[in-house]
Design a protein around this nucleic acid. Structure first.
Lengths: 214, 214
DNA sequence: ACCTGAACACCGTTCAAGT
DNA sequence: ACCTGAACACCGTTCAAGT
């Protein structure tokens, strides 16, 4: 017990500093820039020093994804006073802005998905929303998977298109893809609300709370 | 015109043979195995010979994705005698089986998405389904994006989970994820059918997947 | 326990040549 | 036009050592 945390010759290195460097590289150079030798150089250390704190390059990537997921704001999701559609929407929008701010973060997410505590917490809070809404447990779990799949897939495609696009998208295009994203989420909520009707016919909600089709 | 197709010293190499080798490597070793040196070695040629036919490694990947998309069966999708939900489902299921049979194909798809003629054709046929169903043009386009996003995201997550899973999933788990996939697609169709109601109130369908259009 | 130097087996890509 | 040899600047990872 006593010899725990005996720092080595230099206390400059830690999981924290490595992940800091990794996140910097991700933001500046995309997912391809998150490399063992890259983070080592960023901290000013030999490449193999990283292996003292992480078993693998993949382990660094997973830890980085976990850190990014931890930055997602769950406040709107947890607010039980708001209708479930709005809670869902606030999560989806925040995930999108958060993940798109780090180009290449989503490809890491899709490559090594969602094991850590932050990911688990997000999943459970999302499950609460659907059980609160009145879905039966099995459907709530399926709905979780459905929403996360749509959000991640949508963000991934958007990030990929931004990656290889000749010019960076105009303000109009950005707004259009954002609307497309919300539109899809609303269609998805419509489908889920029908499932709600099948379980609790009394808690029926109209299909289009905000949208106005002509 | 006359000197077209003058073969070089050896006719062993072509875009075809390169893509053949790339597909072999993809099937056997996953997306990470699709490498310039790898395909060159597979064909028995120097690494830089590949650059005679492709400008880039990314170009090889894009062409490979195009080839795989070409293998997707569009028969069920194009059959106008069937209800639109069934047409959609046959496409989604075929895309899933086709892409999951090549581990890592989806990561290529998400990295360099959908420009080629096969991808375009698939998108247009999909658009036909929704216009046939009665969606107004803008919503049909959005529905296309929604369905493709869901399918690709879902398949990508499934492939990633299969990649790092200790043991390959049991038959039960495979069946469960397949059901999850179909369930999500059905919810999505439910949401879209509500949109149908808003446009053409006469062609309303119940939430049940076996419903028939006008 | 923590970090380094050196090495191994890989990459993508380019450049100057050969035919 | 097509292909090769050689090289450059990178990778991830390991091994033996130093402190």
């Amino acid at each position: 017990m006593t010899q725990r945390r005996r720092p080595g010759p230099k206390g400059t290195l830690s999981r924290q500093t490595i992940l800091d460097a990794a996140q910097t590289l991700l933001s500046s150079g995309g997912a391809g820039a998150v490399t063992v030798r890259g983070v080592a150089a960023q901290v000013g250390v030999a490449p193999n020093a990283v292996y003292t704190y992480f078993s693998d390059k993949a382990a660094v990537q997973r830890a980085l994804v976990e850190r990014l997921l931890g930055e997602v704001d769950l406040g709107g999701l947890n607010d039980r006073t708001r209708p479930w559609r709005q809670r869902l929407r606030s999560l989806a929008v925040d995930m999108r802005t958060r993940l798109l701010s780090h180009p290449g973060a989503v490809s890491l997410l899709l490559a090594a998905p969602m094991n850590g505590p932050h990911a688990k917490a997000l999943g459970e809070r999302l499950l609460d929303v659907f059980t609160d809404a009145g879905l039966k447990p099995e459907d709530a779990a399926r709905a979780c998977h459905l929403v996360l799949t749509y959000a991640l897939g949508s963000i991934a495609l958007e990030a990929a298109q931004a990656d290889q696009g000749r010019a960076l998208p105009s303000e109009n295009e950005r707004a259009a893809t954002r609307l497309q994203y919300i539109w899809g989420l609303d269609r998805l909520c419509d489908g889920l609300s029908i499932q709600l009707v099948a379980t609790h016919p009394d808690s029926y909600e109209t299909a289009a709370p905000t949208a106005v089709p002509d």
